[in-house]
Design a binder for these strands. Structure first.
Lengths: 136, 136
DNA sequence: CTGTATCCCCAGAGATACTG
DNA sequence: CAGTATCTCTGGGGATACAG
């Protein structure tokens, strides 16, 4: 894994790709970062097409990496809220330029996501707390 | 809150993940971006462990996405130089924070690539410009 | 040197059903 | 609601050999 050359160290990247090179990881990080707190099913709805198993899988992986925080309430019905850890927030920040690049690239190409994903029902606005950090 | 300033549309990300979620794509983009021009075997050596098939595969994918430019010289022996397109450069820029995040995270976590490639800790060796900075 | 051509293999992603 | 439990199955990635 280590290249003995003196030029460039990609080792940290090798660590990172195990996180971000997961198909849904960045999406999920971004979604959670965008919402502050979000529940399992909310994530699943937003990621139209993901299966609970896959979502749980990625979620657990991200927890293991200390990127997201899982807070479960012992209620009926059960409620679990996912939020970003400090590390996760930093990752979310770091990923933002990427999203902007993708947006720009997408818009010049073909703007394939008009309407359908922009009218998502974000911000449940429960109570007074609706401040989403990470969202400038 | 999904207003102009802070709305994040994940749809473009769905397009992007097909690019960056490839195991080696970001690595290769970074490497090419770091070197300006680089040859097939040079990339392969830096990505210790990658097989020519995989590299060629990612490379072709990247070409298809107009992220890298392939310039082949009809020489003996043949020479091919890869460089970033304008889009690729932008991607490289967008990926930079990610790398920095990864570096930071790696260093606090567990120095998994100590010695061979993190030599900047050991004997800075004069104030001359070292080349092992990934992105400065 | 720069790739193709194969073959293999398993991790990851999907679907579905089920449980606490 | 929030996941697990299985099963499948594709395709990405690795290894090796070979070609232009």
């Amino acid at each position: 894994m280590e290249n003995n050359s003196n030029h460039i160290c990609l080792c940290p990247l090798e660590g990172i790709i195990n996180i971000i090179a997961k198909k849904w990881a960045i999406l999920i990080i971004s979604i959670i970062g965008h919402h502050g707190k979000i529940r399992f099913n909310d994530i699943m709805q937003r990621l139209d097409g993901i299966s609970p198993k896959t979502l749980a899988d990625v979620l657990k992986n991200l927890q293991k990496e200390n990127l997201i925080h899982r807070e479960s309430f012992s209620e009926i019905p059960p409620r679990v809220e996912y939020s970003l850890t400090d590390d996760g927030k930093q990752l979310c920040e770091a990923v933002r330029p990427l999203i902007q690049w993708a947006e720009k690239r997408d818009s010049v190409d073909k703007h394939r996501c008009k309407g359908s994903c922009h009218d998502e029902n974000v911000a449940p606005k429960r109570g007074t707390q609706q401040k989403n950090e990470l969202i400038t």
